[in-house]
Design a protein around this nucleic acid. Structure first.
Lengths: 326, 326
DNA sequence: CTGTTAGCGCTTTCAA
DNA sequence: TTGAAAGCGCTAACAG
């Protein structure tokens, strides 16, 4: 159509579109005129088919509306925006079945690489995918050839949080954990235990409650903890959202934070700066994780070495923790 | 490859893949065996190219990490998940340039339809897109042939919020607005003004501050409002996030909510149930908007009538508003 | 510098 | 019930 109207061959149009070979100014002008008047958009499907490359990076996230994954996606997007690549996001909904379906969808669309954000696929499954597709995964440590993993020391983050509470004089510290099969959550649990141990404090399993990483789970957890009637003066929540829910439950019971009970969260969601009082928490460099993951797939795709910048967790002390009353 | 290994023609494989024509049990078995062992994923690009249909719905959102748009996306996703369609999300970042680029990308990928979530494209631009592509848009009222708009009466929502404050005895009510060029925000402004008027209260432009829909904007707004030294006992914020920021600013200044000042937000983000105290706000049926938008594109694509279910805004009274002290 | 040709992986006639 | 052939829109190799 374009070719007819401009009186040139398809290859000439292609050459102009891609700048792949010199074209005379005359023909170029003619073609470009038609191109703009017709608002021509080259068919990405046809391109992908012939080039064997779609300039698309698949992203398997867990929850499309989550503030946590949202920030990672933003990091990925910003990195890709500087290139010709583009991200195709599918959600695994935190269950393996959907994750496998999502991966199938990405493969069917012939993405050039995949970023897998945490999730429940096994390392072996990931390795299998990486046989024919560059894969970058967060939250694990199984780098291998075409599979790049980037993990952050969750253990250490938890250790920092609990150490902080202990330094404030707390000795009875409850832990609101995530799902039992969640890797991040169990690593944080170990950090919690280690910090207690290093300070010669007893680990008491009655002070540990498993919840679901959501605010409502935090609320529930408080009720469980309270009915168990084990005294505690501080709470370490495995993520900020559960800390929110826990705070609300305490507020309802007229227990004040931080006067009566201190709380530390994990993640440092953007909103944690604006809770009341602002939440003391462990900051995950979420956006940077996204950026790094983005750069890593590109590196894998283009067979370039991947710059491994260390990602660290930091304790952000705000106003939900305070020295225990004498 | 599959064809060779199973000793059949490509058309036979295609027929099995699509169930488009009967195939003998014998060949079917042979092919299916190869299909599974090879973990064959039909190339979606090639399919799309030949069929002229990609089973993909483009979604132009504004902000990939936002809790508000995230909920809409979830609604869309859930509707599409029941069909063969799949959503391709691009972000417009709240500026027209990126939105146009995003639309171009979606067109290049030959999506079968587009959902445009608010944004800054003009109605005319949308209409132009709809010439060759089914378009569903939220937050406007310009339905026309291949363009379906769904809007919610923001005016009414604001009216409810302000009426509520007035009923509690407030007469000096500040409004923290969104950007001046934002349609939702200006409609809410009109609802605010109307409610004042209907109750014979003066509209005072000094009580109106424009911010950016983000928490930090709410914080800033409070400072502006306070330095202007116009007394007020209640605040209506054009969205929840600004209400969060405003609350924090007040807390810092030792002004208590709701004892000293009442606050009403807008949107009812999932987290608003867990703020402290829980936020009184106007609930937008965000998830339903997503669902409806999803159903609407499918309707447009398949030339089926679109079920228009009315979407209403509700005032959710929680704990940031109370009767003014005598 | 430019046009012709072949082919990416699939579906869809058309014959058989 | 099946295969051969054409073609979706593009790019890349090859001639010229």
């Amino acid at each position: 159509m374009i070719t007819l109207e401009a009186g040139v061959s398809p290859s000439t149009v292609s050459r102009i579109l891609n700048g792949s070979a010199p074209v005379s100014a005359f023909k170029r002008d003619a073609v470009e005129r038609v191109l703009t008047t017709r608002q021509f958009q080259p068919n990405a499907l046809a391109r992908g088919l012939v080039r064997g490359k779609t300039l698309t990076i698949g992203v398997l996230t867990q929850d499309i509306g989550s503030p946590f994954y949202g920030e990672i996606l933003r990091g990925i997007e910003d990195v890709l925006a500087k290139t010709d690549y583009f991200s195709l996001i599918v959600s695994g909904h935190g269950n393996q079945k959907d994750e496998i379906a999502g991966m199938a969808l990405l493969e069917a669309r012939r993405v050039d690489g995949v970023i897998v954000l945490n999730g429940r696929l096994t390392d072996e499954q990931l390795l299998a995918y990486s046989e024919h597709l560059p894969v970058v995964a967060t939250g694990r440590g199984c780098t291998f050839r075409n599979l790049f993993s980037l993990s952050i020391d969750q253990f250490h983050g938890a250790y920092l949080a609990v150490q902080h509470l202990i330094e404030l004089g707390h000795t009875r510290i409850a832990y609101i954990s995530g799902p039992e099969d969640n890797l991040d959550s169990t690593q944080r649990m170990r950090g919690y235990q280690k910090a207690l141990m290093d300070n010669s404090l007893m680990y008491d399993s009655n002070l540990v409650v498993h919840a679901d990483f959501r605010a409502s789970g935090g609320t529930l957890a408080i009720h469980q903890l309270l009915t168990a009637r084990r005294g505690f003066t501080a709470i370490f929540a495995a993520n900020d959202q559960m800390a929110y829910g826990a705070s609300l439950a305490l507020y309802r019971l007229n227990i004040r934070v931080p006067e009566d009970i201190s709380i530390v969260g994990f993640d440092d969601l953007p909103s944690s700066e604006f809770t009341m009082p602002p939440l003391t928490t462990v900051r995950q460099p979420v956006y940077q994780i996204g950026e790094l993951a983005g750069k890593a797939v590109l590196g894998l795709i283009e067979h370039q070495p991947i710059q491994v910048q260390p990602l660290a967790l930091n304790l952000i002390v705000r106003e939900t923790t305070r020295r225990i009353r004498p």
